[in-house]
Each structure stands twice: as structure tokens, then as C-alpha cells.
């Protein structure tokens, strides 16, 4: 929207599942072109927060903006109005998301997976979409796998198709939900390489990850979450080298 607004802004975000409070007041800002990594033990609410950013989860309290626009709601006369399905979909189209379990469409080939959303959501000619998708798949190193179905691809290849699929919508923000956690160790590198390239090209990214090395090398900001709150945040090298908080120290001693 406005060039000065941060790409993502959260203010006191709360989320409850029944009586369980998963997010208990998350506030942060992600600037344009910034790469933020979120680390923390499982159940700390990292994924829930990520999913709230594109309204896959509805938050219970607080405010969440993407590119200056409120997520999932319209504020009018001091009240929040839920956005209709079509509006929510339109905003989601501008945010790419990559999942831990890839979630490729198994009944479509790699190429069809990438073409599907641009064709359906944005319309446009098939030839142009195919060309675009082919370029994207080449970029993630899969130009020879266009006609393969997901079941014929390795985990690392599937995740790279998933990244290409998200990029095909030309998003202004990419969300990664533990993109390498379901991969064999030897396949992690290829996926991280693609993400590293993306960061270098200036994509705004929020990455929930356990890859501390990736966070140290690529991230501009690191957030450590535990039990629904941000325990510590700052420059990744600083946080990783000199954690100030006991809980951060404990967590890092286990994963490093």
C-alpha cells in the first residue's frame, strides 16, 4: 500500500483453541525486503502465528496488518467487519505459503501444480502461464521434472515445486512453515539454497524453522518464541551468540 508501512505488523495478537491459549500477545514488525526467522520449541505458537498472517487462523485479539491492510477484516465506524470469502482470497493471493508437508496437489503434475492458481485466480492465457511456470521450475532446478507427479518426486523436489507454486502468484511476502522439517538431511540443502536465492533477490520472508545455521546466515531478524510469547528477538548472530534469556539459552543448548 504505502511505501513506508512495514510489510507485516502485529500488535498484541492472541489466539485461543478452546481454552488453550496458543498466542498470548505477539507484537512485531517485518520491514519490506526483510527476512525474519522464527525459532522455538514445538507448541510455542510459531506456526499458528504464521498461519494467522494469511488468515488461515482467525485471531481472537489484537491487530495484524499486511502491507498496511488489516488481515481478514475491514475497520468501519470503530467496528471490525469480517471480509467476504472473495476478499480474503484476493489478499491471500499476494502472500505465498510453503508448508512442512509440501501439500502439492497429487492429481496434478509439477507443471500443473504451478499453473493451477495463476490460471484460476488471475485468469490469463495458458501459454503465458506455462512459460512462466517453466521458468520458475527451472529456477528451482527442476526443469526436467515438469511432467512428473508429486509421488514420483523426492521430498526435496516436492518442496521446491511447492516454492515455485507459491512464487507463481508473484507474492509480495513469503511464509515458510518449517519447510525442511519433513526432509531427509541430504535433501535439506537444495531447498535452503532456493530460499537463500530468494532472500538475496529481496523477497520479504518469514521463516519458521529449526535450521539455526540458515537463520544465522540469511535472516535479518531472529525471533525466539515460547509458550505463545516472544521471549527474545534481534540480530540473529547476536541472539544466537549471546542469548540473554534463560529459556533461549536452554533451547539453543538443545538444538545447536
Amino acid at each position: 500500500m504505502t511505501a513506508s508501512a512495514p510489510m507485516v505488523k502485529a500488535e498484541g495478537v492472541h489466539k485461543r483453541f478452546g481454552r488453550l491459549e496458543v498466542l498470548r500477545g505477539i507484537s512485531l514488525e517485518v520491514a519490506r525486503g526483510e527476512v525474519m526467522c522464527i525459532i522455538g520449541p514445538s507448541g510455542s505458537g510459531k506456526s499458528t502465528f504464521l498461519r494467522a498472517i494469511n488468515h488461515l487462523e482467525k485471531i481472537n485479539r489484537g491487530r495484524l496488518w499486511v502491507d498496511g491492510e488489516l488481515v481478514g477484516y475491514r475497520e468501519h465506524g470503530g467496528k471490525l467487519h469480517e471480509l467476504p470469502d472473495r476478499e480474503v482470497a484476493k489478499r491471500r493471493a499476494e502472500i505465498g505459503m510453503v508448508f512442512q508437508r509440501f501439500n502439492l496437489f497429487p492429481h496434478k503434475t509439477a507443471l500443473e501444480n504451478v499453473i493451477e492458481a495463476p490460471r484460476l485466480v488471475r485468469g490469463g492465457a495458458r501459454a503465458a502461464a506455462t512459460e512462466e511456470a517453466t521458468t520458475l521450475l527451472r529456477r528451482v532446478g527442476l526443469s526436467d521434472k515438469l511432467a512428473s507427479y508429486p509421488s514420483q518426486l523426492s521430498g526435496g523436489q516436492q518442496q521446491r515445486v511447492a516454492i515455485a507454486r507459491a512464487l507463481a502468484m508473484k507474492p509480495k511476502l513469503m511464509l515458510f512453515d518449517e519447510p525442511t522439517s519433513a526432509l531427509d538431511p541430504e535433501l535439506v540443502g537444495d531447498v535452503l539454497d532456493v530460499m537463500r536465492d530468494l532472500a538475496r533477490e529481496g523477497m520479504t520472508m518469514i521463516v519458521v524453522t529449526h535450521e539455526i545455521g540458515f537463520a544465522r546466515e540469511v535472516a535479518d531478524a531472529l525471533v525466539f518464541m515460547d509458550e505463545g510469547v516472544i521471549v527474545e528477538s534481534g540480530d540473529p548472530r547476536e541472539v544466537l551468540a549471546n542469548p540473554r534469556h534463560e529459556r533461549t539459552k536452554l533451547f539453543l543448548s538443545k538444538v545447536l
Binding site: 482470497a89 484476493k90 491471500r92 505465498g96 496437489f105
Partner: peptide, 22 residues
């Protein structure tokens, strides 16, 4: 799988498109 719906929604498909195409 629920993940299929989530992936489709995250790409900007509406609920109807997700049901019909995915």
C-alpha cells in the same frame, strides 16, 4: 487431506474453487 484445502486457500483460491478444482 486438510493440507490440500489449506494449500489451495493460501494460493488465493476461493472455497468454491478449492472444492471444485482440488
Amino acid at each position: 487431506d486438510e493440507g490440500q484445502t489449506e494449500a489451495a486457500l493460501s494460493l488465493g483460491m476461493t472455497r468454491l474453487q478449492t472444492m471444485r478444482r482440488i
